[in-house]
């Protein structure tokens, strides 16, 4: 299993690199125009490579299970963000090189007098700058997630269309009809992908609705949303996975949000999500009424004990509502009467906000489970661990001898906690390959 994932991981990285550099190879095929100045050719090469990488951004977020499997969805979104900055740098270098080495080209910025190829290019770069700023500073600019998501898709499509127009009108390298045809086909392919993700997929979801069975409050300002399939068999999932939830309206509503399942994967009749009140959408979960229709696109994610079935022992580390996917795994293991040793570190603010506190106690006799609660603000007579989940606390309770591949660690919590715990685990000699993590703030 692990080897297959490594092969998949390397394959997709190689594919990405091959696709990113493909245009440079393509430009050298057929009738190649005579060479111009070095900096001009470099500028054009960076423009073409940047445009291709821009289009690959669509593939990264199109929820292809096979692409995400080896890395995890959170890492794919992180890469999407990081590579977008690299891509923007490459694209920006395209006009900057022209302006530096041929200042006369600055005249192309005068959109009133400039030819259409320049107008389209300038507009594409400006919109790209807007796209990146509204994404990096979405929270700071207080842009609503749902609205941002619609504009992000529309802007991205518009930018690629403008850039395609720019290279076709510039004509220099696309000097033969077949070369233009390849680029147009390439652009249409990505447009088609977008149509699939945003239109065809929702139509498929429309035929597979769920209804709200109940909404119950949990400790730690969280709500559990129990759903059952409405007139369809629903779907199975691996414990620890997540799905995109569209509540209310239709699956076209675009108000999709990713949440982890909290229910047991062995319970095929219904699914449950446990959601903490964090943002605008999560605050409305409690307002959902029994019988209301919702749409669920899933399952996704690799964060599951079922992906590491060979382990002799599992260690779970949760922070706050990060317990959700781990709860799904614990409930599933209990339903399967799994007897392997399980250790749960659970960091919470205080004793009253320990989500699933009572149910976790009931799982202890059903499983070979030890729970280490770590409280930031413990009650007066607390004799357990206190403060943050430190390296010392981990070391005190973790098995002394680590057998590679025999113990698998699952970590889910707020980003600062995850970063700290991951560092601590590595210092304690836990192999990186045995640490599996999922960040719950994907976007």
């Amino acid at each position: 299993m692990r080897r297959r994932l490594v092969v998949q991981a390397v394959f997709w990285i190689a594919t990405y690199i091959a696709l990113a550099i493909a245009p440079l190879v393509l430009l050298k095929l057929g009738e190649v125009p005579p060479g111009r100045e070095y900096w001009r050719e470099l500028s054009v090469a960076l423009g073409f490579a940047g445009l291709t990488m821009l289009t690959l951004q669509f593939a990264l977020t199109a929820r292809f299970r096979s692409i995400k499997a080896p890395y995890g969805a959170d890492v794919i979104y992180h890469f999407h963000r990081q590579i977008s900055l690299v891509t923007f740098g490459l694209i920006l270098a395209h006009p900057l090189l022209l302006f530096i080495f041929s200042p006369a080209t600055l005249g192309l910025l005068n959109v009133l007098a400039a030819p259409w190829r320049a107008r389209l290019g300038v507009l594409a770069v400006l919109l790209l700058l807007g796209l990146i700023l509204t994404s990096v500073w979405r929270k700071r600019l207080a842009i609503d997630y749902s609205a941002w998501r619609i504009w992000h898709g529309l802007l991205a499509t518009g930018i690629v269309a403008l850039a395609m127009g720019h290279i076709i009108l510039a004509r220099h390298y696309l000097n033969q009809p077949w070369k233009q045809a390849i680029w147009v086909a390439y652009g249409l392919f990505w447009a088609g992908l977008l149509v699939y993700v945003r239109i065809i997929k929702p139509i498929l979801l429309l035929r597979r609705p769920f209804v709200v069975e109940r909404v119950t409050p949990e400790r730690g300002a969280a709500w559990t949303l129990v759903l059952r399939p409405d007139g369809n068999p629903g779907f199975g999932f691996m414990p620890g996975q997540f799905a995109w939830l569209t509540a209310g309206r239709s699956p076209f509503a675009e108000a999709e949000h990713p949440f982890s399942f909290s229910s047991s994967a062995a319970d095929t009749g219904r699914i449950a999500f446990t959601i903490k009140e964090l943002g605008d959408f999560t605050r409305t979960i409690k307002d959902l009424r029994p019988g209301q229709r919702v749409y669920v696109d899933g399952p996704f994610g690799h964060f599951s004990v079922d992906r590491q079935p060979h382990a002799a022992e599992y260690v779970f580390i949760a922070g706050g509502v990060g317990i959700t996917p781990i709860m799904s795994m614990l409930r599933t293991l209990a339903d399967r009467v799994d007897v392997r040793p399980l250790l749960l570190f659970f960091a919470s603010k205080d004793w009253d906000s320990v989500t699933f506190r009572e149910e976790l106690e009931t799982l202890i006799p059903r499983l070979n489970l030890k729970i280490v609660h770590v409280l930031e603000k413990p009650p007066a007579q607390w004799d357990g661990e206190r403060g943050f989940l430190s390296q010392a606390v981990l070391e005190k309770h973790l098995p002394k001898e680590w057998d590679r591949n025999a113990i698998e660690v699952f970590l889910c919590g707020p980003p600062p906690m995850m970063a700290a715990v991951e560092q601590a685990l590595l210092k304690l000699g836990v192999p990186l390959g045995d640490i599996h993590s999922e960040r719950f703030n994907l976007v």
């Binding site: 990285i13 690199i17 990113a20 430009l27 060479g35 490579a49 740098g89």
Partner: peptide, 30 residues
Amino acid sequence: MRQRVSTWLAICIGLLVLILALAFAWMQTA
């Protein structure tokens, strides 16, 4: 950690593309 690896991967891919673009321009003008 995996996120840091992906950040470095993004930087490396950017550098690789830059090197290939430099090579492309060199081939075009040589």
